[in-house]
Design a protein around this nucleic acid. Sequence first.
DNA 1: TTACTTTCTGACCAAATGGTCAACTATGGA
DNA 2: TCCATAGTTGACCATTTGGTCAGAAAGTAA
Lengths: 207, 207
Amino acid sequence: MNMPESTRARTRNEKAILEAAEQVFARHGYRGASVQAIAEAAGLPKSNVLYYVGSKRRLYVALLERMMERWNAMLDDIRVEDDPAEVIEAFIRSKMQLTQTHPQGSRLFAAEILGGAPFLQEYLHGELRDWVEERARVFRQWAERGQMDPIDPVWLIFLIWSATQHYADFEAQVVAITDREALDDSDYQDITDFLCQVILKGCGIRR
Amino acid sequence: MNMPESTRARTRNEKAILEAAEQVFARHGYRGASVQAIAEAAGLPKSNVLYYVGSKRRLYVALLERMMERWNAMLDDIRVEDDPAEVIEAFIRSKMQLTQTHPQGSRLFAAEILGGAPFLQEYLHGELRDWVEERARVFRQWAERGQMDPIDPVWLIFLIWSATQHYADFEAQVVAITDREALDDSDYQDITDFLCQVILKGCGIRR
DNA sequence: TTACTTTCTGACCAAATGGTCAACTATGGA
DNA sequence: TCCATAGTTGACCATTTGGTCAGAAAGTAA
């Protein structure tokens, strides 16, 4: 990796800006975040941040897109012939891993939805909805075959999303109530195992 | 109710302000909300809003306190002799009702936690933590008696909180994916039944 | 009516907002 | 070396921010 100094600085700064911005946007939402605060968190002058990202709006959109990419990378295929237990467990585990590895991104996403998802309407109504319906179809077939209870698949997907997302979005609450400084790997292991157990059993899926 | 005009106007305006503020704070968080926007939503001049509430900060705190009162009103007592199925089902149902009747308040609360809960540290570490531990103790005894599976009670409480809260906080997502304009009473009935069924069964609670 | 209190509001303020720009300093290839 | 390009930044701008205040308006009680 023998890069010219200029591009090295560029990538370094861009990374610092994205990281800082994700933090600030997650904490305060789009309106509540200030370019000044982001610049300070990145250790750069405000003008320099704007030189790199163009505008606050574009920075925000770029972060949302990065998060959607991570999300999409998680969403693998599914077939009726697959084993329900395996698929749903893998689903819970990968969603939980996303939460654990990108809590800031999770919170950024949450803040966007909380605010009425003004930038994500298209994505939610398009790609994501299709993905949910595709899964739902398979879940219903599993239920018909008696491989799981006849529950509404969409509510099940929301249950998994909410239960996992919670540990990023409500981290402050979780940490306060469990009297920890932060959740560590073994906590996340425990929680993931707990969720797999309760949800699979709750849906009548044998494993 | 024959009130003098002055007090009638006062109560009317205060109500309008609280409602408008809950909406704006929920949508944009503390920093992102502007007194101007709240005033417009309440149909009053900004100066008038500040005349009533003193400051943005005090308005925000008053709203959080109102939400905590609603929350506390929901949290009833629990004893080891009670029936687990009944208690947990009632718990899920009352939490869901809070979500349904006060979605703005739910979102306000969520935004506060997302931002690191700067105004709620005390409450989370005090009252709420005590309440959770009290419940957890009883859950553990139920598990020992074989009335439910030996799961971590705190994760269970978080599961119920997250799964219910989700339908207020992520309403924009739910609405987009299910292609509705809004969730109605029968939707909430279905979801509540679904959650009771899956969670009770998932915890090995017979009913 | 009069006297007094409460409600209301436009004008105003210092500070912060997102964004522009001209001037400056690297950097890297010729 | 020289030059063009890229990176950097403080000064600056119009607008918005939360909040104050003087005084107008309206209600209340005698």
